[in-house]
């Protein structure tokens, strides 16, 4: 099992990370003491490299759901990220070039953040 790519929420209350514990790579969140572990991308595709938005309401990530590795944002609630079979992800890139490691600028609030 591989848990990797830890990323802090802006309030230091949650960690997002990448794990293959469910068969594909997915994004999970957990608190700093290891409690409240849950997936926020329960999909058949692979999701990688989480990075939180400034105030912790969105996560930027890489997904191969279209066959190419593109950058997406995923909206979560501050204290209890929604776990659904189809998380609402917004695709930001479309050029099909290989991508990795999105990093959200800490000082940049977004309209929905």
């Amino acid at each position: 099992m591989s848990d990797c790519q830890p990323a802090w929420s802006g309030d230091s209350l949650l960690l997002a990370f990448e794990s293959n514990r469910n068969g594909t790579e997915d994004i999970f969140v957990v608190d700093p003491k290891g409690n409240g572990l849950r997936s926020v991308t329960p999909l058949r595709s692979n999701e990688f490299h989480p990075s939180w938005s400034t105030f912790g309401r969105q996560i930027a990530l890489i997904s191969d759901r279209t066959g190419a590795t593109e950058i997406y944002t995923l909206t979560v609630t501050p204290t209890a990220p929604v776990v659904t079979s189809k998380p609402a992800m917004k695709q930001l890139t479309f050029d099909k070039a290989p991508k990795a490691n999105p990093a959200w600028e800490r000082t940049m609030p977004t309209p929905t953040d």
Binding site: D3, P6, W8, G10, S12, L15
Partner: peptide, 16 residues
């Protein structure tokens, strides 16, 4: 020990 991530409150570092 890999992929360190410094907490925004400065108190801890998560890593793999």
């Amino acid at each position: 020990n890999l992929e360190p991530a410094w907490s925004p409150d400065g108190q801890s570092i998560a890593f793999v």
